[in-house]
Simulated scan of single mutants.
Amino acid sequence: MAKAEEYVKAERELFEETIVNNVEISPGVFLLSVKRRFDFLPGQVVKLAVDRVQPPRIYSICSGNHEQELRILFNIKEGGYLTPKLAALIPGDKVLVSQPYGGFAGSAKSAWWIATGTGIAPFYSMFQSGLADNKVLVHGASYLNQFYFEDELDWAMGKNYRRCCSREQSCDVFHGRVTDYLRTVENLPADVEYYLCGKALMVVEVRDLLISRGIPYENIIAEIYF
């Protein structure tokens, strides 16, 4: 079998895994853990399902590539099929997980990581995998309790960890959206990579803003959350 065919087959295959932990880290937001079966690149994704009836959904891995557990960050979608069932799982229950895949992978190069909401997941994986040097992390959220892992990120990254909150205010947090914050930055470096992860509207708006500020298109790497 050709390598490309093997990759597609591996991408589609789902393996039954046992839940190790499932913690609600913020209202309606969970961090689900299973034992890691495969190696992966920080920033990659897996497909996740609770049965073979409904199609799986894609989630970024939210753990370091050296850890024994593979973790997924997700929020409950009202009226959704998968996420309410995922939220109800307890240690010992089973879940279906694919092999990691995808090209949204971090590196040791200088970069800006730009995320909204649970789009922080791949960047936390990169951070946990030792790739935070020479990085700026910009995280946008509607409410202050949506800055997941903020204590750890703030302690480790200091001034390179920048929070933007659109609906609440606090010291050391920019009041406004990610795009509002980026417009206040006078000199966005053109010689670094920009990784964007979040909903489609944010990704498109930030990409267009970066291009208008002289950032080369090839320096912008995007992952859209649905």
Rank of each mutant, 00 (worst) to 15 (best):
D93Y: 01
D93F: 04
K94T: 13
K94R: 14
K94M: 08
V95S: 09
V97Y: 01
V97H: 06
V97R: 05
Q99V: 13
Q99R: 15
Q99F: 08
Y101C: 00
Y101T: 04
G102N: 06
G102W: 06
G102L: 03
F104D: 01
G106C: 07
G106N: 10
S107N: 13
K109L: 12
K109N: 15
S110K: 13
W112H: 08
W112M: 10
W113M: 13
W113Y: 12
I114N: 04
A115T: 11
G117F: 09
T118G: 08
G119E: 11
I120F: 11
I120N: 03
P122S: 05
F123K: 05
Y124T: 01
Y124F: 15
M126K: 10
S129Q: 03
S129Y: 04
S129H: 04
S129R: 00
A132M: 11
D133R: 15
D133L: 15
K135T: 15
V136T: 15
V136C: 06
V136F: 13
L137M: 14
L137W: 15
H139L: 15
H139S: 06
H139A: 02
G140I: 00
G140Y: 02
G140N: 00
A141Y: 06
A141L: 06
A141P: 04
S142Y: 01
S142F: 01
N145C: 04
N145L: 01
N145G: 03
Q146T: 02
Q146G: 02
Q146R: 06
F147M: 02
F147H: 03
E150Q: 15
E152S: 10
E152N: 09
D154V: 02
D154Q: 13
D154S: 13
D154M: 09
W155D: 08
W155N: 12
A156I: 03
M157F: 09
G158Q: 12
K159E: 14
K159D: 14
N160C: 10
Y161G: 11
R162T: 15
C164K: 00
C164F: 05
C164V: 00
C165N: 02
C165M: 02
S166H: 11
S166F: 08
S166I: 01
R167Q: 14
R167I: 04
Q169N: 10
C171R: 08
C171G: 03
V173C: 13
V173T: 15
F174E: 07
F174G: 07
G176M: 07
G176T: 06
R177E: 03
R177V: 03
T179N: 09
Y181E: 10
Y181G: 06
L182D: 07
R183P: 00
R183M: 12
R183V: 05
R183N: 14
T184H: 05
N187Q: 13
N187G: 00
N187D: 14
